[in-house]
Design a protein around this nucleic acid. Structure first.
Lengths: 195, 195, 195, 195
DNA sequence: GATGAATGAGTCTTCATTCAT
DNA sequence: CATGAATGAAGACTCATTCAT
């Protein structure tokens, strides 16, 4: 999955196994002994390279992030226009996630502690939200308030944009950001006649 | 923080304390005994209401989610146009997060297992990404490729939009979605003369 | 099962339920709350009659023992000869155990902590012993060393007699007792011509 | 007490300590930590060898049973006649119990949950029974219905024989067994003139 | 008397970490 | 360097018992 240069074969094996086990089970449910076994090394050997389980997690994430950002930069390097860069960056992101699928779980999914039943419940909640937005989108498209097109993607885009509002600090700040984002959306989604 | 009707005072206290401790320390580092103490009840009392620590987490998240979605619906109810709805929804989201600040941590932040030092490192990584995008944005604005304005917000918006690409399944799917999103961005961020 | 006079209906219900639950699950795995529920009373009510769970167990056993001994005496009362008495006593014992089947579990079976798999293993061990004795018995019958007859019962009888040797204190004591018991067996099992 | 070959010193120590603590306090009142301390090992070490406290109990009993049966077989091996075998078996049994005194407690005594006061009460109950039988025996000897001799032992033997009637399934079954056992007794205990 | 919500002492079990080999 | 047997701190969970109603 993740390949590293300048790293002993053992360390590389450890990091790879850690990556896999962490992504599969989550940090707390992953056992050092399991990682060791998976890597084909002794438990103690891991501590030759990493001072603690947390240090190991950091190793995994660092490697992942470095690769991610490197890849991002590599994709952008040969682009000239803004839109080329953005498009390439997005492509790199999508590509990275597709090929390092599990990685996002280390970064984003902490629900491994939760059983499947509940996880499904969470998705239902999320879907409720998406449905809510999809209805609004559908109505908007019908009335011609926004450009017709992929309803699902549009709803997802709207929802995703909303998630960017996480760091508002006060009412004014949030008002400003909401305006800003909604304005972009307005332009982005409005009826386009030709282009 | 979270207020519940139809719930014994004790259960409400437990849920509130659980909410607080979970958001402060993360699920795995939160101790049931600590939650009990914080709620001013005995350890055993928690188990009268919730069969396990996980069940308790679910209780916390469920309540949070229900409130979140309820609030969302309430804000939208009296809106007529698409853009009113969207704006209100965004406002509700920002408002909710501002007022239930810690909640997003239960849902989105799993880095509580990680010490501050490392957390900072993560932010630096993230900032690297933002800086990368900010540079692109700046250049784009300078060259007139996109409308001038809030550089930070624009970069964040671009980054956030990118995060919505998480569920691509194959190369074609990702290509389509990238195109879709970039197109919206193009329209959303392009030079607007008049409006 | 067990009926008691001079006892409130509630106490009687509690004792009966305790008897049942204790015999089903063993003392430690029986929960006071379960007994209360089974008896149709509140948990606290049990403590009105019995100071503790142990006290309750004592109540159950005492009642059981009293009945057992009473019954024994009742059966013997009208017998005249030694052998009538013995026979009646044995009959009473067998009858009691058949009708208070579970009671012996409280008294004799402490393996409720052990899962089925292991319990079966224990029985196999016991059977090994019985088989061992049965072989000896068979051989003895074939050679005419003992009277022919029920092999199983004979083996069981021999084994049971052996169990009576539990309280030997030293080598001499045990020697004496072994001699004593074996002598009775010799006479009891030897070829009988006529009777 | 129990000696084992092919077993690490640590495991042997654990098993011995478990044996001792279990026999002293009973399974439920024995604490794993206490066993560990007694064995001079860490609590966790026990779990290196035995998956659970129950597994440990099984280990203790299995070893005990294996030794018991082995010893039994060893004693019998060189015997030729039926009565030699029986005598040797009985001797082995008595010997085993004398030397592994506590073992019978793990197997047969579950009253460790009960305090001394009550345990004594139980013995009194048992003695009542013995007294009852002793009286009958005495009378029988006086009247010449049975051979004179050790009254105590005779009473115990009779009582022990009775305990073998535990597995009767119905009235007929019990009748048959009672007859069978009483008949052996009749022959075993009757007046022997010469021998 | 009767109740059951509340309690918290008590224990098994896990697992990251160490260190002698 | 590599190992894995040994460790013990830490914490979820149980359930007998209490006591206000």
């Amino acid at each position: 999955m993740v390949d590293f240069k300048k790293m002993s074969e053992k360390e590389s094996a450890i990091l790879n196994s850690a990556y896999q086990i962490f992504t599969e089970k989550g940090f707390h449910n992953a056992k050092v002994s399991e990682i060791a076994q998976h890597a084909g090394v002794g438990k103690g050997t891991i501590y030759e390279y990493y001072a603690s389980k947390e240090e190991l997690l950091r190793g995994v994430i660092q490697i992942g992030m470095l690769h991610y950002i490197e890849e991002m930069k590599r994709y952008i390097k040969d682009s000239n226009t803004f839109w080329e860069k953005i498009e390439n960056m997005y492509t790199a992101h999508a590509y990275f996630l597709t090929n390092h699928d599990a990685f996002k779980k280390v970064i984003g999914d902490h629900f491994s502690v939760i059983n499947k039943e509940f996880h499904d419940w969470m998705l239902i909640q999320r879907n409720q939200l998406i449905e809510l937005v999809k209805e609004i989108v559908e109505e908007g498209m019908d009335k011609g308030e926004i450009a017709s097109g992929q309803k699902d993607w549009t709803a997802t885009f709207i929802l995703t944009s909303m998630m960017g509002l996480q760091d508002c600090q006060d009412s004014d700040d949030s008002k400003g950001k909401v305006d800003f984002v909604v304005n972009i959306l307005k332009n982005g989604l409005k009826q386009r006649n030709g282009d």
